[in-house]
């Protein structure tokens, strides 16, 4: 799934993006492309703005400068129906799942279908059940989010994000707060969805096993230079990056012996 010179046009383009809060830039002049079908991982140390970058890419925050292009359409600053059309192209899984607590899992997955499609009631139920089955949650349709484990909540959130069959899934820290086995199962789910459905994944994480399992390509953000420190294949960066900090990150070494 690596992009090569013959590859189709990128599905997401980040062009000269500067972002921050209160006039203070957190990251400056970021530019990168993501190819269709790619599993793209955003890395960086704590507090460098990984999740903030993701939230800018999905349009929750307005950047200070630059733009995000999704599927060839400029997303940043677009309003109205054009914006909703772009929103329809991607789904988001938030760090803690962000399932609606007053609804069952089935109702959570049904919600986008109810709001945006004219499917008959039974068809919506079936589609929602199929999505839950796809993430391994068959039989939990009538459970409330509070009644299932954290890993299951995240899978349900992926099912909800996939309700309208998006081309792109954004995942914010899928492994956060999960035990290694559950985390590995989530990785396998991501790989399976990528293989079967050809979904493009943009993942923010700093779980090393996850990165080596799923990532086609990573970018590593840097707090000091407020830019991209390195990008490429994670195994290659681990062994051959010219940046000592990048090699240390992938080899899980502390910055200084203390």
């Amino acid at each position: 799934m690596h992009s090569d010179s013959q590859s189709p046009p990128p599905i997401i383009q980040v062009r000269d993006l500067t972002l921050g809060f209160g006039g203070t830039p957190l990251l400056e002049h970021l530019s990168f492309d993501i190819a269709p079908g790619e599993i793209f991982v955003i890395l960086g140390g704590s507090g460098c703005g990984k999740s903030t970058l993701l939230k800018h890419m999905i349009g929750l925050y307005e950047p200070m400068a630059g733009e995000v292009v999704i599927g060839g359409e400029v997303f940043t600053g677009t309003e109205g129906q054009a914006r909703r059309d772009i929103l329809r192209r991607f789904g988001v899984m938030y760090q803690m799942g962000a399932l609606f607590g007053s609804m069952t899992l089935l109702e959570n997955v049904r919600l986008p279908l109810e709001e945006f499609t004219g499917l008959p009631d039974e068809a919506m139920d079936l589609v929602a059940r199929l999505k839950l089955q796809l993430v391994g949650l068959a039989g939990f349709e009538q459970h409330m989010p509070a009644e299932i484990s954290g890993g299951m909540q995240k899978r349900a959130a992926i099912a909800r994000a996939m309700a309208l069959d998006p081309d792109i899934l954004f995942l914010d820290e899928p492994s956060a707060g999960l035990d290694p086995i559950t985390s590995a199962e989530l990785d396998q789910l991501i790989l399976r969805l990528s293989r079967i459905l050809g979904i493009t994944f943009v993942v923010v994480t700093h779980e090393l096993p996850s990165i080596f399992t799923i990532a086609d390509r990573v970018i590593m953000l840097d707090k000091e230079t407020r830019g991209i420190l390195a990008q490429g294949d994670p195994a290659h960066l681990r062994d051959h990056s010219e940046h000592p900090w990048v090699r240390r990150f992938f080899n899980r070494e502390a910055t200084e012996a203390s």
């Binding site: 929103l87 938030y94 803690m96 607590g101």
Partner: peptide
Amino acid sequence: MKVNEELNALTTMG
């Protein structure tokens, strides 16, 4: 809902 990012989830659902 806001603290749990459910409002963000609504927004990105359109």
